[in-house]
């Protein structure tokens, strides 16, 4: 009974990787240390879509043995640092199993986007 909800994930992947992730350096502002301890940001990589839009992928890892639920949303900025209006900027609910590594991604809302910010908030 005490172990209820503690389900962790085993995984396997190819050791010799053909694809190379273009990792980008990040700058973090952590105000919820508790959430950050449980669901940690491992790294961020970016690529371009066939249509030339910036695509960003964030790798997350659940450091706990239980499922964690959180909300996230991407904000996008143009070359002048101005936030780009995006109809789809609402929080996205997500969950991650115990000890699981997971990717979330987003595609820039238009070709003018140069920078981004991802916000995470713990779900109730």
């Amino acid at each position: 009974m005490l172990l209820a909800g503690c389900t962790t994930v085993n995984s396997v992947e190819n050791a010799q990787k053909d694809g190379q992730r273009k990792m980008i350096s990040d700058q973090r502002v952590i105000t919820d240390a508790s959430l950050n301890r449980r669901v940690a940001i491992v790294g961020i990589n970016s690529a371009m879509t066939p249509g030339g839009l910036l695509k960003v992928q964030v790798e997350l890892e659940n450091h706990t043995r239980s499922i964690q639920r959180f909300l996230y949303h991407f904000e996008w900025f143009d070359a002048n640092g101005m936030q780009v209006n995006n109809i789809l900027s609402a929080n996205v609910p997500e969950q991650i199993e115990g000890k699981e590594s997971k990717f979330i991604y987003s595609v820039a809302p238009n070709l003018n986007c140069r920078d981004f910010r991802v916000k995470f908030i713990e779900a109730d």
């Binding site: 879509t49 789809l88 609910p93 595609v107």
Partner: peptide, 22 residues
């Protein structure tokens, strides 16, 4: 409304990522 937003978000993201519309 949140479900519609999530579904629309996922659809647009995948559609733009696929390049089909280009």
């Amino acid at each position: 409304i949140q479900d519609y937003a999530d579904a629309a978000n996922a659809a647009v993201k995948e559609l733009l990522d696929s390049g089909a519309i280009d």
